[in-house]
Design a protein around this nucleic acid. Structure first.
Lengths: 325, 325
DNA sequence: TTGTAAGCGTTATCAT
DNA sequence: ATGATAACGCTTACAA
């Protein structure tokens, strides 16, 4: 038994003769080692888990692809678990991966303040890395994030220079870093240009087309509606486009529009829609590399920030009626 | 030890008093059972694996969501593995899941004829269900598929009735059932209407925007180019739209266009694009249910076929120049 | 009802 | 260099 084990795990202390004999028997019998037993004994599984808030977000898919490539390279398998944006599922997934003894976890949580999840993480003994999320300082949680703040700041600044004075920002939960950063980006742009913070109207809603549609209509119904809308999420964008179509408002003529994240509609819409883009596969790769470092016990960065870029497109035009300045 | 085990797995033969004592100790010590050891002993893991050809296909994501909901309900955890359309990764994923002792697998393979994968599957001892795929009869592999054939047949028939006589079908590998079925659907429509099979030009290419763009240009460069294009995949659709834009051809005026699968661009393109839609979450749910039946050893269907629907939209207009009939 | 002990398939330690 | 044996953490006969 032990000789077989030695042969199969390339232990040096084994004669060429025995090695050959074992290898032959292995082929003969079609023997396959049991990873479960191996892992139980070794205490390591050579696998990592990735818990994502929502698999149906194409950006998440790209992040996962980026991460998987790095892990594959390093000999690790990555298993994905989808939380459907449900807190309950999320903590159950983390627990599941723990019991399966993954050697590390990548987490893109649907909420940063979920009590069960936080409790779980405080006594989690495998390393983990957050993606586009941040936890309270006491967690000292390493993370990889995009600089949404400067992306939105640039976008809003450009809109201001085009003559816009009133903005509507649709965003997901402010319980998530990216939402907060986008809001901060808009506020910073307003402040830089000496505008009132109240001229940036933020609506924080669940990431669904229906919510996006409703919120957009609400914005348009305001006494002084925004002349530019920033749709912070591709699902919300779909809703916004529906609302605008319903009211017969032409993007880039009657209203300016900026989307977050590069997706097919932004390119193919008429007119094409400006976006604040992030490096999705880069996020995945960076997170995987950071996690590998921590799994090896190497010194590693606390937070990695990746840049975003504002891509101008014709959806960003001057406002219909130039307001008095 | 055994009493603890009994309490934790709800064995009836345990006194309320002891149960309480155990439960208290569990809380006190923060004890968590080791699934690895449990599974090793029990021979079952209460988990299933889902190997998908490509996570970045949003339809796949929906299928996964549908399946996960059903498994969750039944007490199973579903782990996802992404093959990036690479045969090599695919078989390695299946092997990984086998060693992790998943109790069943859902497979949406990137190729139906990969030798390594086929070899793996013949001696796979956990039940599996294919999604949108079919293997040679000797596998007797249960599967859940969509009726792409009738969807495309309907679409092409409608185009013929609008006056179109020449068609270009862009599709992924014919090594995958859906590609073959779409081709068959087009041929059937041509035959029904007494047209020549040669008037349906099928191009089988890798599912990327670049390939879609190139193939579309090739179609347009033909001596008698098609007046209607069917883009069989949302990545290909992106390429087709790019090619048409480059040549300044207006969808629904200069050329008719049908897409496969409902995605945001089809709704928001100007003009909106007709699609052959399938029930993605339904596919996932049906596959999960079928797999559960097989895992329980219940009698179950061999192949489940779900309907597709053709959704007309303005991208389907009569051809520019009415050909002589 | 409870406790003892064997065993799941490995690997690591220890003699030989 | 090789083989016997204990141990990883659990479940389940079986005995008490």
């Amino acid at each position: 038994m032990s000789s077989v084990s030695r042969v199969l795990s390339d232990h040096p202390d084994v004669s060429p003769k025995l090695r050959a004999r074992v290898l032959e028997a292995v082929v003969q019998l079609g023997y396959e080692p049991d990873y479960l037993a191996q892992s139980l004994r070794r205490g390591a599984t050579l696998s990592v888990g990735f818990v994502m808030a929502d698999i149906s977000n194409p950006l998440m898919a790209e992040i996962a692809s980026g991460a998987e490539a790095v892990f594959q390279e390093a000999g690790y398998s990555m298993v994905l678990m989808n939380a459907h944006n449900e807190e309950r599922l999320e903590s159950s997934h983390i627990r599941f991966l723990t019991t399966r003894r993954v050697d590390g976890m990548l987490l893109s949580l649907s909420s940063e303040s979920s009590r069960p999840t936080q409790r779980l993480l405080t006594r989690l003994d495998v390393p983990y890395v957050l993606i586009e999320r941040e936890l309270p300082p006491r967690f000292q949680a390493p993370s990889v994030v995009s600089d949404h703040r400067s992306g939105i700041r640039t976008a809003v600044s450009e809109l201001i220079e085009l003559g816009h004075r009133r903005f509507g920002l649709l965003t997901g939960s402010l319980d998530i870093r990216s939402g907060r950063e986008r809001l901060a980006g808009m506020r910073e742009a307003l402040e830089i240009h000496g505008l009132d913070a109240g001229d940036g109207i933020a609506v924080s809603i669940g990431l669904s087309p229906a919510n996006g549609e409703r919120a957009t209509e609400d914005l348009l119904d305001l006494p002084t509606p925004p002349t530019a809308i920033i749709a912070g999420g591709n699902q919300l964008l779909v809703g916004t486009l529906r609302a605008l179509a319903k009211r017969n408002l032409k993007v880039g003529e009657d209203i300016a529009l900026v989307a977050v994240d590069e997706v097919p509609i932004t390119e193919f819409h008429s007119p094409p829609i400006a976006v604040v883009a992030r490096d999705s596969t880069g996020l995945g790769r960076a997170a995987a590399e950071l996690l590998l470092q921590r799994m090896r016990g190497e010194p590693s960065a606390g937070t990695v920030v990746l840049p975003t870029t504002f891509v101008w497109r014709p959806s960003c035009s001057p406002p219909r009626v130039q307001p008095v300045t």
